[in-house]
Amino acid sequence: MTGTINTVRMRAAQETDVPAINDIYNEAVADQVATCDLSNVPVDERRDWLARQRHPYGVWVAVDSAGVEGWVGLFPYDSKPCFHRTATFATYVRRSARGKGVGRQLRAWMIDRAREHGFHTIVNRVWATNDASIALAKRFGFVEVGRMRELVDVDGTYVDCVFFQLVLEAGEDDDDWGVG
Rank of each mutant, 00 (worst) to 15 (best):
M1L: 11
M1R: 09
M1H: 11
M1V: 10
G3F: 05
G3V: 08
V8C: 12
R9D: 11
M10K: 04
M10F: 08
A12N: 06
A13E: 04
Q14Y: 01
E15S: 14
T16K: 12
T16P: 01
V18C: 10
P19V: 07
P19E: 11
I21L: 14
I21K: 00
D23R: 15
Y25V: 04
E27Q: 15
A28Q: 09
D31Y: 02
V33L: 11
V33A: 08
A34P: 01
D37N: 12
D37C: 05
N40Y: 06
V43R: 10
V43Q: 14
D44K: 12
E45D: 14
E45R: 11
R46Q: 15
R46C: 08
R47M: 12
D48G: 07
D48V: 14
D48P: 01
W49I: 05
A51G: 12
A51P: 07
R52A: 14
Q53A: 13
R54A: 14
H55F: 07
V59S: 08
W60F: 15
W60Y: 12
V61S: 01
V61Y: 00
V63C: 06
D64K: 10
A66G: 12
G67M: 09
V68A: 03
V68I: 10
E69V: 00
G70M: 02
G70Q: 00
V72K: 01
V72R: 01
V72L: 06
G73S: 15
G73R: 08
L74D: 04
L74N: 05
P76D: 03
Y77A: 07
K80R: 15
P81D: 06
F83P: 00
T88W: 01
F89D: 01
F89M: 11
A90G: 15
A90M: 10
Y92P: 01
R94T: 03
R94S: 15
R94K: 14
R94Y: 03
S96P: 03
S96H: 13
S96E: 14
R98C: 04
R98A: 02
R98E: 04
G101P: 06
V102R: 01
G103S: 07
L106E: 03
L106H: 02
L106G: 02
A108Q: 13
A108V: 00
W109H: 15
M110F: 00
M110W: 00
I111M: 03
A114H: 05
A114L: 07
H117A: 14
H117F: 09
G118L: 03
F119D: 07
H120T: 03
I122G: 03
N124L: 09
N124E: 02
R125K: 12
V126A: 08
W127G: 11
A128L: 02
T129C: 11
N130Y: 02
D131I: 10
D131S: 13
I134F: 00
A135C: 08
K138S: 04
R139F: 05
R139M: 10
F140D: 00
G141K: 01
G141E: 06
F142L: 10
V143A: 12
V143Y: 03
V145D: 08
G146M: 09
G146T: 08
R147D: 05
R147Y: 05
R147K: 13
M148N: 09
M148W: 11
R149H: 13
V154R: 15
V154H: 09
T157R: 15
D160P: 05
C161A: 15
V162R: 09
F164W: 09
Q165C: 10
Q165L: 07
Q165G: 04
Q165H: 08
L166R: 06
L166F: 04
E169R: 13
G171D: 07
D174A: 12
D176R: 11
W177Y: 14
